[in-house]
């Protein structure tokens, strides 16, 4: 009984609107919903749109680099802190600090840093290294990587905190035993600790995936999708078409394809992880 309000909200707001989005995507709605069905015409238009494919490809690149980068750097920082550094509290705060900023602020900061005329490139050249180049943000073939750089910078602190919590939960006896056996530290991390941290990796992966899928504000603030539409992401494509271009049907089709893609990519991983956990509990 107590769950009824929550369930109603979930069903209406979540599944209800997914269905509604799908219905809209079958119509030729422009500014406002109209229910004149045209079959899969919006999907045909969507798949013929080069900007959409650029955005989808960018999602794959950005997702891979961003999640990978957050996991690798976050884990690495957590290990460094866990090894016992002086002023641990200070480092923890330092790495967590970017998280307190919104993606918009992050985007603006990095836009300045990476601007070839005022940022890092100009600063290094002023120091005397005239051939130094860091102009990714203005190069259509590199601009997507700048998103990952800014994104990782912002989110790595959160990943570090999660990994650190996991590392602190490791039974100290494991460390004592490995010392007795004379196993090098890196092997303990690689072969013993990392497999034990499986659930933490899972959590980080899911959290970061969610951030990638809805990545919108970072693109808007950092590159505006440019140069051209080389750093566009599907979420921005969808919002742009629904709100700015009066292409409600096309935007809805984009949103639905995005949802299907996400389900297709993420669900096998979630399924296997959860199955393994359930199996593990049986022992």
């Amino acid at each position: 009984m107590a769950l009824i309000p929550a369930m109603t909200i979930t069903i209406v707001c979540f599944y209800g609107f997914i269905i509604w989005t799908f219905v809209i995507s079958l119509t030729r709605s422009r500014l406002l919903p109209v229910y004149k069905f045209t079959g899969f015409e919006q999907y045909v238009r969507l798949f013929a749109n080069e900007r959409w494919w650029t955005a989808m490809q960018n999602l794959a690149i950005h997702g891979f680099l961003f999640i990978g980068g957050c996991v690798v750097f976050g884990y690495f920082l957590a290990i460094l802190i866990d090894r016992g550094v002086k002023a641990e509290g200070m480092f923890r705060t330092l790495f967590m600090l970017p998280l307190s900023m919104s993606f918009i602020v992050t985007g603006v900061i990095w836009q300045w840093v990476m601007n070839p005329g005022l940022g890092l490139q100009e600063a290094v050249r002023a120091l005397g290294w005239a051939g130094f180049e860091f102009n990714w943000i203005v190069r259509p073939d590199r601009s997507i990587y700048t998103l990952a750089i800014a994104g990782i910078w912002q989110q790595v602190g959160l990943c570090m905190a999660l990994f650190l919590a996991g590392l602190r939960n490791i039974d100290p006896n494991i460390w004592k035993a490995s010392r007795v056996d004379g196993i090098p530290v890196w092997r303990v991390y690689l072969h013993i600790i990392t497999p034990m941290m499986r659930t933490v990796f899972f959590t980080v992966f899911i959290l970061m995936s969610a951030i990638v899928m809805k990545a919108f504000d970072l693109v808007v603030a950092l590159t505006g999708g440019g140069p051209g539409f080389s750093s566009d992401l599907p979420a921005r494509f969808v919002v742009d078409h629904i709100l700015n271009r009066q292409e409600l049907g096309l935007g809805a089709a984009g949103a639905f394809v995005l949802l299907c893609t996400v389900i297709a990519v993420i669900s096998p991983y979630i399924y296997f992880e959860l199955k393994k956990e359930r199996g593990g509990r049986g022992h």
């Binding site: 900007r51 259509p140 140069p227 051209g228 539409f229 080389s230 700015n244 271009r245 292409e247």
Partner: peptide
Amino acid sequence: VPSAVSGAIDDTISNFWNSA
């Protein structure tokens, strides 16, 4: 022009301009 068209115009021009 309808905003859908003007959006498409912006997209292609900007893409063309920025693709060397």
